[in-house]
């Protein structure tokens, strides 16, 4: 009996903590989103919500709507899967302007800029013939898949007999930008 009396502050504390835990559990049922956990530790609804968002970056299919010629150039080549954005920038602005121009021919389409050499560039649309664009994917580095088409630039340029192996545009002596097959 006296132990019970001596420890009543602890029972009170335990009661308080228990109540807090219970409150937390109740709160959790309120806070828990309805479709949470159905497919994994996230809101299942979120998938549909995200899918319904307009895409910020144009896909190649968007470019194809107007650039039929380029599409044909790349059709069936191994580079078909390489996105336009790799070599021309995200072109968000370009697509918007081009769409306006399609409706109203007096709207000018700004010409493409020169690439600044930065792979995280903020330039919207650029044209470039720079070997580093190609080498960002094709330069042989440790750990590349064995069957990927990769080159050691020095050896490759030497072997193929490039006339200006130090020039930035050297790859385009023999390869195209779109149909890259030599």
């Amino acid at each position: 009996m006296s132990t019970l009396r001596d420890s009543r502050h602890l029972w009170l504390l335990a009661g308080l903590l228990g109540a807090a835990a219970l409150g937390m559990m109740l709160l959790r049922t309120v806070l828990m989103p309805a479709t949470y956990g159905i497919q994994g530790p996230y809101r299942a609804e979120a998938l549909a919500e995200i899918a319904a968002q307009p895409s910020l970056f144009p896909a190649d299919a968007t470019c194809h709507q107007c650039h039929e010629k380029v599409r044909h150039e790349r059709d069936g080549t191994l580079h078909e899967a390489v996105r336009c954005a790799h070599c021309h920038g995200l072109a968000v602005d370009h697509v918007a302007k081009a769409r306006l121009a399609a409706a109203d021919p007096s709207v000018p389409i700004p010409p493409a800029a020169e690439w600044d050499g930065n792979f995280l560039t903020r330039i919207d649309l650029y044209l470039t013939k720079d070997r580093s664009t190609c080498l960002s994917c094709h330069e042989q580095v440790v750990g590349m898949p064995a069957d990927f088409k990769k080159i050691d630039p020095a050896v490759h340029l030497e072997e193929q007999g490039a006339s200006e192996p130090t020039s930035r545009e050297t790859c385009f002596e023999c390869h195209g930008g779109h149909d890259t097959a030599p």
Partner: peptide, 19 residues
């Protein structure tokens, strides 16, 4: 802060000490 328990008997102090 005292949860309304306003006395500490020697027994309670001993329990607290052990805890």
């Amino acid at each position: 802060l005292a949860l309304g328990v306003l006395d500490i008997s020697p027994g309670a102090a001993a329990i607290d000490q052990r805890l």
